[in-house]
Structures are given as C-alpha cells and as structure tokens.
Write a protein that binds this DNA or RNA. Structure first.
Lengths: 138, 138
DNA sequence: TGTATAGTTGCGCTACCATGCAACTATTGT
DNA sequence: ACAATAGTTGCATGGTAGCGCAACTATACA
C-alpha cells in the first residue's frame, strides 16, 4: 500500500506535475538543463524532483556520459497507466508556457541531443562560475 | 493547477485511500460510524479525512437527519475517472480486512440504513459517555 | 593533472499535514 | 426542555516536505 501512497505523494507537487507533463508533451527523453530552462526552476531543485519521481517509479533514467536523460516509465502496470491517463487529462492550457519553453530547447538540440547546458544561467547552482561583467565572486 | 494538486494530496494518505476503496467495493453510500468500525480509526479522524476528500471533489454527501452518508463522486470528468480507475487497480488483497469489516456492518443495516452507530466504542470521541463497569468518568 | 560541465546531496529553515484530545454543533428521541 | 447520538472542529504536538545555499560527485575535455 505504501508504494501507492508514495506515487500519489510524488504527484502532489506542482513542479513534479509540470515535469511529467513536459515529458508527455515533448514525447522524448529530456535532460536536467532542458527541464531547468523550460520550468525556470533552479537546477538542484529539478534534480531533486526528478529523483522523487524516479523513486516512485514514474520515470526512468538513461545516462550518456555526463548527460542524464529522463523519460516517462513504459510500465504496463494498470495503476500506473491510469495515473498517466489522469495526468494527460490535466488541461494543457495550464502549461502553455512550459510547452513553449521546451519547444525552444528542443529546437536547439543537435542530432536529438542536448549540447547547450543551462541557458538561463541564474538557475544554475551558485557554486558554478556565473559569467558576469564584474561583480562579486566567492 | 492547484485543484489537481489538491486531489493528489487528498490521495496521499493511507486512511483516505482505504476510505475510497471501501466506497468502491461496498457499492453504496456509507456513514461515519460504518467507516469508523471498518477502518478501526477514531470517529473524529474519519470525519476529518472525509472532509478532505469532499473538499477535493472525490466524494459527495447526503444528509438524512443526523446521519450523513458519503459516496464516490459520480463526476464524468476525465481526470477524475482516470483517478478512480487507478484506485480500482490498487490490489484488493491489501484491503481484505477492511472489506470483511465493512461487510459485517452492511449486514446489520435495516432497510439499507445504518441504525447501530459505532459498535467499537473505543473509537468514539472521549467526551461521549463510554459504557464501562466502574472506572473514571469526567 | 587540472579545469569545466552536468548533475546530486547535506544542512538548516519554514510551511504543511496527521493525530490526540476535548469541546463543540446539528438533529432526534424522551 | 433536556438528554442522547451522529458528526464536526479548535488547539497543540510531532513528523514530513519543499526550498535556498553551498558543497559535492561523475564524466569529459584541454
């Protein structure tokens, strides 16, 4: 029973619902930096939410070098299929900006791969060197 | 988007999942005391969880005098239908005791109505006179 | 080997949530 | 009118979850 509760808890967050919707609408695996730019949420939080979804069995992971691609699970489990169906019925009008932003990112893929990293640099973790014109550094 | 999150949050609790499963398997409206006996959870907590489910639009209420009967929503909304489908796919083997206990309660209904109140008296609120052989009273 | 990049995780803080207890309200029966 | 019963809710407590910050790890490039 706890695994079902864990799945519902994984779905009880706006960011995670947006992530699942992006995966559904994009129809392709996405990496953390694509989610980061599309959702406009800091990379470390995107990573966290992806981990929660993975632990709940809702998404799967494919690593390519240092890139990690996330996809909707392809499980045929009836419960999971019904959950996926429910998510598909969340009106896409609520996620227009997400869809628009992910399309932008997918348009700059090369050979179906992400090569740009995070474009919206303010969403990277602070320990990364953020290119600035002068200003404070740690 | 918040309404979908609220629904998933309503589903993120074991007691509320058991309540929905009881309503699904019983195929009839149930009252608080029937839930209380079947789930073996204090009446005031059953009442609380029922309120959360009602606020999320997952169940509906019918009052008959001082009795309140709760039913699964009959909404035709696609999202809701998919959620209900998911709940139906939670293995009933996980809820055998609940099913057995609710059958007991339904068997003592008269004309389809609950007339007994809570049978497991330790689950009533403490401010009620609990029949005891001696012992402390407030 | 050192640097850069993609991604992950620990810590502390704040807000949220479930529960127990007790008091409460609404309705009905005496 | 009072008592009983079904059901609801306020308060306090403890546990859970999301976030910001910063440090970290894994992998690839120079």
């Amino acid at each position: 029973m706890q695994e079902y509760i864990e799945i519902f808890k994984a779905l009880s967050d706006e960011t995670r619902l947006r992530i699942l919707n992006l995966l559904h609408s994009a129809q392709t695996a996405l990496c953390v930096c694509e989610f980061t730019d599309a959702l406009e949420i800091p990379q470390y939080n995107v990573s966290r939410h992806l981990k929660i979804l993975r632990n709940a069995g809702l998404i799967t992971v494919r690593k390519e070098g240092r890139w990690v691609y996330f996809s909707l699970s392809t499980s045929s489990d009836s419960f999971y299929q019904a959950i996926l169906e429910a998510i598909k019925h969340i009106p896409s009008t609520l996620l227009l900006k997400d869809h628009k932003e992910i399309d932008k990112r997918l348009n700059v893929r090369i050979d179906g791969k992400c090569l740009l990293g995070i474009q919206k640099k303010h969403l990277q973790g602070k320990s990364k060197p953020i290119p600035t014109t002068g200003g404070l550094t740690k």
